[in-house]
Amino acid sequence: MEEENYEASGWDAIDQAVEKIYGDQQPAHYGTMIPYTLGGNDPLDGISVYKSEQPIAHWHFVTYGFSELYEKESDNIAVSGYGFELTFRLVRDAAEEEPPAWALNLLQNMGRYVFASGNVFRSGDYLDANGPICLDVDTNLTALAFIEDSQLGTIDTPNGQVQFLQMIGITADELEAIQTWNTRGLLEACKSYMPYYITDLERASLVIRQEVQDAIANGIEQDGSSTGYLYNDQLAWYASETKPAIITIGAKQATIIKKILNGRLLKNKSLILVGQQAQITLNIGDTPAIQENEEGIDITLHHAALEELSTLLEPKEKIVNLSTFKSLEIHIKPTLIKDQDGNIIETIG
């Protein structure tokens, strides 16, 4: 019986990239017993975890499965699969013999999100976890940022290009700084306090440091906000010929919309609100206007309406009536924060 020729050229390319850093170190590898395509729970084929001592002792996780590990299947010859693999660096205690299971689960959860939604991560992206990234630990890290892994970078494989994206645990106010400015700017400002962007569940927010605050303020003034799209699952639109048009948003989103608005519109950049029921594009202009088209709703705010809206938006249930734009109302509804089991753990507004 002939031996089956089982090509894993994509997998081998990842191995070769990591070997340049860790040599012959044998990682702890966590494979998947039942493939996701056959009904298994874990979408990633595997996760390897290396011990690194520089600049401090930490675990270095590397995923296998977002890219094409075996033969080429997609039509895009330039990119392998989704075009990336995730990495994650986590502070390692001297007594730890094995990497923590929660981090492996977190990476698999990222896989479930991508495989289910088709949304890919890119360098500069961020994700609000709506709670601690590790449920069993009292930590201030409640969100994630993504940037190219400084050691692994981007590689060419037989199946196309693969970028290694490092996932970084961040605090709520660091997330807010990213949304109102940008990911790369905030991470660069924090770099000296977070070498190699190693996640430390016990650390405090770095936004409390004056030099970081100054960098954020200067960055927002110079660059504005890089958040062009803002997803809001409570977003809705209602228009009537006899009454003001109504935008419905969640109370949690009201806060961040308020903070992003000036950083986008005053820099002549649009802000696009995306929801399951509507897509609304906000722009700055000379005259307030509402226009519906195939892509969604375009709303033009003049400076007086923008100033008034920025003042009135707040994270509580209310109806915002604009004296400067009487044909538009904003209805703010409570936001329900739920855990993985669907239980309500917090109500905002």
Rank of each mutant, 00 (worst) to 15 (best):
E7K: 14
I14N: 04
D15V: 06
Q16V: 07
K20I: 14
I21E: 08
Y22I: 07
G23N: 06
D24L: 11
D24V: 08
Q26S: 11
P35C: 08
Y36K: 05
L38R: 12
G40I: 11
N41W: 07
N41Y: 11
L44S: 00
D45Q: 15
G46P: 05
S48I: 09
S52E: 10
E53A: 11
I56A: 13
H60K: 13
F61W: 04
S67C: 10
S67F: 09
Y70W: 15
T87M: 00
F88V: 03
L90H: 01
A95T: 15
A103C: 03
L104I: 01
L107R: 00
L107Y: 04
M110R: 12
R112A: 07
S117T: 12
S117M: 10
G118Q: 05
N119S: 14
V120K: 13
D125I: 09
Y126R: 14
G131N: 07
G131V: 13
P132M: 01
C134F: 14
D138E: 09
N140H: 07
L141S: 00
A143Q: 00
A143D: 04
L144E: 06
A145Q: 08
F146P: 02
F146S: 04
I147H: 11
S150I: 14
D156P: 10
D156W: 00
Q163A: 08
F164G: 02
L165V: 03
M167F: 06
M167P: 03
A172E: 07
D173W: 02
E176S: 15
A177F: 07
I178N: 01
L187A: 07
A189R: 12
K191P: 10
S192H: 11
D200T: 02
E202Q: 14
R203V: 04
I208R: 14
R209S: 12
Q213H: 14
D214H: 14
A217N: 15
G219D: 10
I220V: 15
D223K: 15
D223E: 08
T227V: 15
G228D: 10
Y231W: 15
W237S: 08
P244M: 02
I246L: 04
I247R: 04
I249L: 04
G250V: 00
G250T: 09
G250Y: 02
I257R: 00
K258M: 07
S270A: 11
L273A: 11
G275P: 05
G275W: 02
Q276A: 14
Q279W: 09
T281K: 15
I284H: 10
G285M: 01
G285E: 01
P288C: 00
P288F: 01
N293A: 06
I299C: 09
A304I: 05
E307F: 06
L312G: 00
E314L: 04
K316W: 08
E317H: 12
V320A: 02
S327K: 13
K333H: 08
I337K: 11
I337L: 15
N343K: 06
G349T: 02
